[in-house]
Design a protein around this nucleic acid. Structure first.
Lengths: 353, 353
DNA sequence: TTGTAAGCGTTATCAG
DNA sequence: CTGATAACGCTTACAA
């Protein structure tokens, strides 16, 4: 194994070695690091110097954590692969918010990849968890709950004993739908995020629609339907991934199937950006031939003139982080619902056909 | 403290409790989890059931790691606040790449915030580190090296004993500069990333330019200068942050100071996007009145028509992850330099003034 | 101001 | 296939 130390020690140097070298007790060495006020400055300096000389870089974090009973690490779980999370601007924004809350304290953030099995959840040394948009009843969620640690749920159905941070999904969705109705649209496509954990793409059957397991998706879709009522016809299509590419493909398909569609409601800006691209390729003017409204209002949407439902994504992350810190400190269980608001930009306009 | 378990145990349930309840040895319980083949299926089932009943959710990861000597965690260090890292598309892309490498194994990723002190580096329970664009000789880097664990350095000056992943910074910068020279530009502004750790903004003195401590910045700047030689005049300005906002402000200032500038070389696309915004606000046509070339070629640059130096950012992250896995497995020290290439788009054109 | 000693919860070794 | 025992490296009352 490659080691960066100048003289690779055969055995690991431990606190005891330092103590022995100086003929002091292990406790004193420990105190030199953790309680400077418990020993004379001179001795402390001596200890630290000896440690340096012997290639000891301070108490082993693992042993220290075990003994103390806390790790100083917050576990973060996202119900998708991590590599995917980093590709989603909204997810990145959220992570950034969590990081902000954590940075204030001397804590670290553990990103837990969530492949098929829940092993990493069981083997994660953390003081608590933040779970971001996992589907209801997912194995991951069960594994987290089984750990018996403080938990903050984000954009999910609240569970007893857990803190909860969410947004007014329904309110935002209703605003978006109302906006399009006011503009005269009566044939509206809906690009939905995943409905269930069984990955599927394209037009959605009523049977499938009855089984939604993602809180966010359910709330938004239900709100679209409720707001629209009999005033317009909705054409629902499900995205396999939350990517512009996917939004583009679904739009192509949906418009081919239902050419009468004059507007599209998208459950994410990422999908909506794909719609814009599709419109470009199809030679459809936006908003003249096709109006588009997204969801999330990610930073790049402003420059693209995309109408969208704004949500305070970074703030959501920050609150989630704070909620966990609060729990860790023995505080109250936080429950927060953040507001959403439609931001009308150039991508939505009067129906002209 | 809020606990998610149905019946909050007074004392923590441990492996020993299960063993006692079943009148078997702790070793057997441990084996039930870690070596299923070491005991009869019947006994194993019994153990697992009892554990479930008693509210034991498996071996404590901390204790297990201490005993085993490895944590299954890779530490990731970025020389900026984490909240900032998540706001930078290039950094996110890189993280996504690392995550991809990690996901394949059952490993976790520890994000270590890097505030003023290096405490989190010392207290991080990890098997190794990936350090992303830290400045030469930074305290952070020293703290990492002091841990004596396997280290992968990314976009930094290689250090003995560490793996290294980088890109052809100079090559890309030369291409960008050559591109503008060919288009006839002779008065060229340069928007630079941070030169040193002492945060500073705006026009750069030769004295300061001599003290660059960021590898990437140094390489690119040197390459710009070398390629340009006497053929053109360069006007250098340093960004305090790598944000579009900062790029915009610097551009405003630079063009006010030197109205003769007809083109801008930017060390990141994020800065370059700010230049585009500044041009819009100043009523300067791009590329007619002002040519712009970025660096990184982040995803959103294509849609914006921004000419840029492409680098395989996600791949870089993946290689960094793999390099660390390799070290952890006792393998060779990896050294990789990835290629860069100019992608000319609409933001750069012939000089017209 | 410093030392003693008892764990923290687990796993590996080795004997039965 | 199962059990006893000794670490892993550290922290912290409490005693000196």
């Amino acid at each position: 194994m490659a080691s960066a130390s100048p003289s690779p020690p055969l055995r690991r140097v431990t606190l005891k070695d330092i103590a022995r070298a100086l003929s002091v007790s292990p406790a004193t060495v420990s105190n030199a690091y953790n309680r400077p006020d418990q020993l004379s400055p001179a001795l402390r300096t001596l200890v630290l110097e000896t440690a340096q000389r012997l290639g000891y870089s301070g108490p082993d974090p693992l042993a220290s954590s075990l003994r103390r009973g806390r790790t100083g690490v917050l576990g973060l779980l996202y119900d998708a692969t991590l590599s995917y999370a980093f590709a989603d601007p909204a997810a990145s924004l959220f992570l950034g918010g969590v990081a902000r809350a954590v940075e204030a304290q001397a804590l670290n953030l553990l990103l837990i990849p969530s492949p098929q099995d829940a092993v990493p959840v069981r083997t994660a040394s953390v003081d608590g968890f933040i779970v971001y948009s996992a589907s209801d009843g997912s194995d991951l969620l069960s594994a987290v709950m089984a750990r018996g640690l403080p938990v903050v749920l984000v954009d999910q159905t609240p569970l007893p004993g857990t803190a909860h941070i969410g947004i007014d999904d329904a309110g935002g969705a209703r605003e978006a739908a109302r906006h399009l109705l006011r503009l005269g649209h009566r044939q509206i496509g809906v690009l939905s995020l995943e409905l269930t954990t069984q990955r599927q793409r394209g037009p959605v059957s009523p049977a499938r629609e009855a089984q939604i397991s993602y809180r966010t998706t359910a709330e938004r879709l239900h709100a679209y339907r409720q707001e629209v009522g009999d005033e317009a016809q909705l054409y629902l299509s499900e995205a396999l991934d939350n990517t512009p590419q996917e939004g583009m493909l679904l739009t192509m398909e949906l418009l081919r199937l239902h050419p009468q569609i004059t507007a599209l409601l998208c459950m994410s800006d990422v999908l909506a950006q794909g719609v814009l691209e599709a419109a470009r390729q199809l030679g459809r003017q936006v908003p003249g031939d096709l109006s588009v409204v997204g969801y999330d209002d990610i930073p790049s949407s402003a420059a693209l003139g995309l109408s969208s439902v704004h949500q305070p994504t970074a703030r959501k992350g920050e609150l989630a982080g704070q909620a966990l810190l609060e729990l860790l400190g023995g505080g109250e269980i936080t429950q927060v619902i953040l507001p959403t608001a439609l931001v009308a930009r150039g991508s939505s306009g009067e129906r002209r056909r």
